[in-house]
């Protein structure tokens, strides 16, 4: 069973992200308030353009120009220098992308070792660590392949290995199975699920409703705002269970709004 402790790793308060200026101003995020605790597997869903990826970029400290508050491990991000943010990305955050984003001119083991460079680890040690991580993904026979020689599923496993090599506490996955067939998708999701069981915090953005079965918490977004959040439902359910005991009759309601059709 997942170990969800009560300390929020990520704490967002009325987060806003604007694009454009003047009349062309548009909100990619419009007042997102969200707490994510250590060890959660959060799946963020929603139609294209609802701000899922923007939210992920902000959580991953790639996007700095935001309004509202963001605290990572209790530290406000707004006051951090760029260098400090880069250090946090290097040590605490692992990224997994839809299109894998492996560097095409580096071989597999060098790609996996890439995050370790910025931690100041020597080359030999880097390669040993990368090799060990690849072994966990049963890719150690392909260490010296180039990225274009791998199948999509293998490339994504390499990308996950790269995200894990520096042992981050938070893993951010943006449509990790978006470019994969269902069989590869299943393997990748099993890997992520496995990581979750080992105590990592995972935040995954996806279009695919089937994948949400792996998650411990599902957030749906709409027009830059959080539409539904299963965490609240759990609380609500608990309330429902407690209420009859207290003999207070109330009409059953969920916080779920009528769902809009996806594009």
């Amino acid at each position: 069973m997942t170990d969800i402790t009560s300390t929020p790793v990520i704490k967002l308060q009325n987060l806003q992200k604007k694009f454009g200026i003047g009349d062309a101003e548009a909100y990619a995020l419009n007042g997102v308030t969200l707490d994510i605790n250590k060890g959660e597997f959060v799946s963020i869903m929603g139609p294209s353009g609802c701000g899922k990826t923007t939210l992920l970029n902000i959580i991953g400290l790639l996007d700095r120009s935001i309004d509202g508050e963001y605290e990572l491990n209790g530290q406000p991000v707004a006051t951090m220098s760029r260098r400090k943010q880069a250090k946090i990305r290097s040590q605490q955050i692992g990224f997994i992308f839809q299109n894998f984003n492996l560097i095409p001119r580096l071989n597999i083991i060098e790609n996996v070792a890439l995050p370790l460079i910025y931690k100041g680890i020597t080359r030999t040690k880097r390669l040993i660590m990368a090799s060990a991580t690849l072994r966990n993904f049963h890719l150690n026979e392909r260490e010296y392949y180039m990225p274009h020689q791998l199948s999509g599923g293998q490339a994504q496993r390499v990308a996950i290995a790269r995200a894990l090599v520096n042992e981050p506490t938070i893993i951010l996955a943006d449509e990790p199975t978006g470019n994969l067939d269902s069989r590869s998708s299943h393997i990748i999701m099993e890997e992520l699920s496995d990581l979750h069981k080992r105590g990592n915090t995972i935040i995954m953005v996806t279009h695919n409703p089937r994948l949400t079965t792996y998650a411990s918490r599902i957030i749906t977004m709409l027009d830059g705002q959080i539409d539904t959040d299963t965490k609240n439902e759990v609380i609500h359910k608990l309330e429902e269970e407690i209420k009859p005991v207290l003999s207070i009759k109330k009409r059953k309601k969920t916080i779920r709004r009528p769902r809009k059709r996806k594009k």
């Binding site: 790639l62 760029r82 250090k87 990305r89 290097s90 984003n101 560097i103 890439l114 910025y118 790269r162």
Partner: peptide, 16 residues
């Protein structure tokens, strides 16, 4: 350009 983006996401600073 993409490599630069990847490296930054993986923790490279501007000076790196």
């Amino acid at each position: 350009t993409r490599e630069i983006g990847i490296r930054k996401a993986l923790g490279a600073t501007n000076s790196d």
